[in-house]
Nucleic acid binder design. Structure first.
Lengths: 183, 183
DNA sequence: TATGTTGTGGAACATCTTGTTCAGTTATTA
DNA sequence: TAATAACTGAACAAGATGTTCCACAACATA
């Protein structure tokens, strides 16, 4: 990809992320985005058909990155989900969030958190579906697989929400424990 | 309230509900609403400051009604939440939803379901907070009250979501059982 | 270095949406 | 019947959207 293209694209995405962490997505105008990104109007529309497409691509890029990290080397897939392991994916994700090395924490704290949590949940479901046998077997046997996967993903996402609403006072380890008790 | 005022207000709310069940809230214009409601533009703005206020009032009206119904006469408050009772509030709510005697089902099936589920959850939390001792005591003892209330409300709301996504194939009784197993 | 291609910036534009205003009409109330 | 309140319809300014055009800068290739 042309360097100019890459620069414009990233400037737009960056500006959009900043705006998303400040105000509701509906109140963000294209004019604001291009002003902050310091990019021409025509350039914006050369990259993104509409604001909705911009959002969609942002979500994909952001969560693609997260899920890559959560399953990255050093952690063995099978290992990741074991509930008593110090390094379950879930704790890993809480830690990742706390460090805020991606910009996602700001977005989850914003008015738009719904948007990101929803998307995040969908990604999670895929991860969980492969590893479901590592969770509470009694529950699993009484519930449709589909329901149970949805349940686990929901509880995780809602735990994140609660954690953030509570100003992230708990450590990743503590909140992970709560998650495993609740789920 | 003047009959004319009441008629206009209800025509607007009705039109808005219909549109909400068809398309995303962001794509609904005031012009569409007033056309469908058959009401003048000035009338709309005499009733609602902006579209956002309209949405807010709609949510309040809708859920106020639901929570009234869910705690209505014939059901004793203490009784409502007992998990093995045939008439727990939760089953009651599932039944209510299935009958669709309020328009809420269409809204929960629409693109805007997030909106309504979120609002619903907040209302639920207040209900649950008073009755928390009726749930799994072991979990309750290990978790902050606040976390546990949020957890129950979340699981209920996400169970509704799953049920609806699954075309409501299960009976209210069955889905209520799943809910109690999961929570 | 010269050449053709591609992306960018900026302005101008038509179109749509919003929220306000106003004058004329209809319904309610006393 | 008279006064009051709400409604209609149209017109309006302000702002947002998405497109088009052109001059210019950055890139790739020879």
């Amino acid at each position: 990809m042309d360097r100019r293209q890459r620069k414009s694209r990233e400037a737009i995405l960056k500006a959009f992320i900043e705006l998303l962490s400040q105000k509701n997505v509906n109140q963000i105008t294209v004019s604001e985005i291009i002003e902050r990104a310091d990019v021409g109007r025509a350039t914006f529309y050369a990259h993104f058909e509409t604001k909705d497409f911009l959002l969609k691509e942002l979500l994909e890029e952001l969560f693609c990155h997260i899920f890559d990290v959560s399953t990255e080397s050093g952690h063995d897939h099978k290992h990741l989900f074991s509930c008593d392991s110090d390094s379950s994916v879930f704790q890993h994700l809480f830690e990742h969030l706390q460090k805020n090395d991606n910009q996602i924490l700001a977005l989850l704290k914003s008015d738009n958190n719904e948007l990101f949590l929803r998307y995040f949940k969908e990604g999670l479901k895929e991860l969980i579906a492969d590893q479901i046998e590592l969770f509470n077997k009694e529950k699993a046997s009484k519930l449709p697989r589909d329901f149970f996967v949805n349940h686990i993903a929901s509880v995780f996402v809602e735990t994140i929400r609660w954690w953030i609403d509570d100003k992230m006072r708990l450590t990743p380890q503590e909140i992970t424990e709560y998650f495993y008790i609740a789920v």
